[in-house]
């Protein structure tokens, strides 16, 4: 474990905590895409199929349980909680899941390191995670007033991806050379999707203005 990986995991954890804080204390999910949250629940479910079969470390297992538990509870809150669900704007969050899920599944079946169920599911989760933020980014663009917590949430998610790239560069020079081009390409694509958001995020921060993405 290097410092970039740890920092990446912590920003990822903070992003989830910020979102749960917004949902749990303010009882609002305004500006949050249920589609993206459902895709993340699917990402973690398919990626962590090895949770009970391959033990890596206690840290690893605990973090996996946190990401699984938090992603499903966020989906539950937005769909079922009697107050939270009222703030969900269904008409704005129109992105179709299958536009992302089906191409990722097809890609994972054909492009993977090993054609086994677990490996294909793991590869699928990488492809899907890369694009799962799209419904959220589309929703942000449609939202005239992006509240602070939503902005922080997306920023932390983007920071997590950027730190993972630094982690891979570090690992590349310090560890035995593994084949990881699938992780790299999916990860770089995922990080690039945040580039536009980062630009406007820093602009609003520099000019001390409210964050707003151009339509």
């Amino acid at each position: 474990m290097n410092i970039f990986r740890l920092a990446g995991d912590m920003t990822h954890l903070f992003s989830v905590l910020v979102l749960l804080l917004k949902i749990h204390t303010i009882k609002s999910c305004a500006g949050i895409s249920l589609k993206t949250q459902e895709l993340y629940a699917l990402v973690f479910t398919t990626r962590y199929l090895d949770i009970f079969t391959d033990f890596i470390s206690l840290y690893n297992t605990v973090m996996k349980l946190i990401f699984l538990g938090s992603s499903f509870s966020i989906v539950w809150y937005i769909r079922r909680h009697k107050i939270v669900r009222r703030s969900y704007d269904k008409d704005q969050d129109t992105f179709r899941h299958y536009f992302l899920v089906i191409p990722c599944l097809v890609l994972a079946v054909f492009i993977n390191h090993k054609f086994t169920f677990k490996e294909v599911m793991w590869t699928f989760s990488l492809y899907l995670e890369a694009v799962a933020i799209l419904p959220q980014l589309v929703l942000l663009q449609r939202t005239r007033n992006i509240d602070n917590l939503t902005g922080q949430y997306v920023f932390l998610l983007g920071a997590y991806r950027a730190l993972y790239i630094l982690n891979w560069i570090y690992r590349h020079f310090t560890e035995p050379h593994y084949v990881h081009w699938i992780t790299w390409i999916a990860g770089v694509v995922q990080t690039l999707l945040y580039a536009d958001f980062f630009y406007y995020y820093f602009q609003s921060w520099k000019n001390n203005e409210k964050l707003q993405l151009p339509a």
């Binding site: 990986r5 995991d9 990822h12 090895d50 391959d54 890596i56 690893n60 973090m63 996996k64 990401f67 390191h113 090993k114 793991w122 993972y164 982690n167 035995p176 050379h177 593994y178 084949v179 990881h180 992780t183």
Partner: peptide, 10 residues
């Protein structure tokens, strides 16, 4: 020598 990647990340 290149080996398959371990799934040790989150």
């Amino acid at each position: 020598k290149k080996q398959p990647q371990p799934h040790d990340e989150l």
